[in-house]
Design a protein around this nucleic acid. Structure first.
Lengths: 237, 237
DNA sequence: CGTTGAATTGAAAGTGATCAAGGCGTGTGG
DNA sequence: CCACACGCCTTGATCACTTTCAATTCAACG
């Protein structure tokens, strides 16, 4: 089980041997992307789909006034552009850390969805969870204070990361700058800095280098008003 | 073409006669819902899917602290709970005006998706557009000022409503209270009131009773930074 | 050892929230 | 038919959270 995509799809439905092998062969073509480089950008022709196998990325949108809004953090197992076949690309995806990205030819992927209904259903479920996550982000940005907001983001990421085996003792890699966090939470970097300090002094997190430790998950979830119902059961450790 | 669902799905792909008849028969069981009543709520058993045929509704989430966040406005042709079959319901849908809602038995719907790939594809595309709309809401709440935010909401609704034939001369029914608008935009009702006044005095909109007129769409879109790429082409009049 | 990007801190300004009160329209019941 | 209540809209005054602007520190790296 070396493949994050397999690990994640496994949560959304059983996979048999042949399906595992198929997905493995599809994710053969791996590209490395350096931090800050775009994996998917508005100008690209959508001949390939991209799946994060290793590292973190962010889906973001630039506004005319120069500000940026991140609409998703992408972690191993996540699709970058499942929608690209159908919609015009209205945003970019950039690597936050060094990434390994699987490139899947769109037509091969189409063939897969036509012939493997169980896999397709798993991916549909995955899409529905993504939608739920987007809704939760709206709630987060719209109605929670900056303090609750950052806490919530961390709680969510812990669940999603643990689903692909990237959390150990509530501790995980976190290659996200305070500027990135700000652009995800609808805040400024300066303010995020103060919020993080507050989380730190309240002994809720430890954040240094590119690693974060949630020192008291229960307390953090309480602060965040975190209700994991919007995630699949198996995402909640 | 009496059915809003048909009208909308038609934008996402051709429908032949038999498909139209099938959808018509599926949407036979119509329920009326009074304003402020929930159409879908957290407690419900998901035996049926619901589609708005007439009227407006809002998908919302209540927070522990008593605040509310609306994550979507639902208009004729929109599904209320396409995700319910798979995910736990973590939010409610309430009627904003008097609504006519089609109830479709989940198992009948499953049969449809199994046997009518073209219809299924149209609905998939519809889902992907919904996702794009959610992303745009995140951008809206996260990075636009209150003034731009309300303007953007109006621009989006104009496009979506015109796709189901509910806009005439940039004028449409708008059964949304200022409190609802506030809960959708992540603002307070008091502040929304002042924003609307500003939009009014700047001659961008006329809003009275339950009807809104966009008096200068081009100017409004410029204020909002509205970039319609996130919607299907045929949604942009 | 200088450069660069990120984190940190302080002070001032501003946007939007909060609190409070009044107005307006409509439906209801006496 | 009028009085009243209720929901919604409107306006004013004050408050506070977050932004903005500006500088400084820190760490990694060539």
């Amino acid at each position: 089980m070396t493949n994050a995509l397999l690990k994640k799809l496994g949560h959304f439905g059983e996979l048999d041997r042949s399906e595992v092998e198929l997905l493995d062969s599809l994710t053969n073509d791996v590209r490395c992307v350096a931090p800050k480089k775009d994996i998917v950008s508005e100008g690209m022709r959508p001949t390939h789909l991209h799946v994060i196998l290793h590292g973190w990325a962010a889906r973001y949108r630039m506004l005319p006034n120069g500000t940026r809004q991140i609409t998703a953090f992408l972690i191993p197992g996540d699709f970058c552009d499942l929608h690209a076949s159908i919609l015009k690309l209205d945003h970019n995806v950039a690597a936050l850390s060094a990434c390994k990205v699987a490139c899947i030819a769109s037509d091969e992927f189409d063939r897969l969805t036509a012939t493997h209904p169980r896999l397709t259903r798993s991916m549909l479920r995955c899409t529905l969870q993504n939608e739920a996550i987007l809704r939760e982000w709206i709630v987060n940005i719209g109605r929670r204070t900056s303090y609750e907001r950052i806490a919530h983001l961390l709680c969510e990421l812990r669940c999603r990361l643990s689903a692909v085996g990237l959390v150990l003792y509530d501790r995980f890699d976190f290659p996200v700058t305070q500027t990135d966090l700000a652009d995800a939470a609808g805040l400024t970097a300066v303010h995020v800095n103060r919020v993080i300090r507050r989380l730190r002094t309240n002994d809720l997190i430890r954040l240094a280098g590119n690693v974060v430790t949630l020192k008291d998950v229960a307390a953090l979830e309480k602060v965040a008003g975190f209700d994991p119902r919007y995630l699949f059961d198996s995402f909640c450790p």
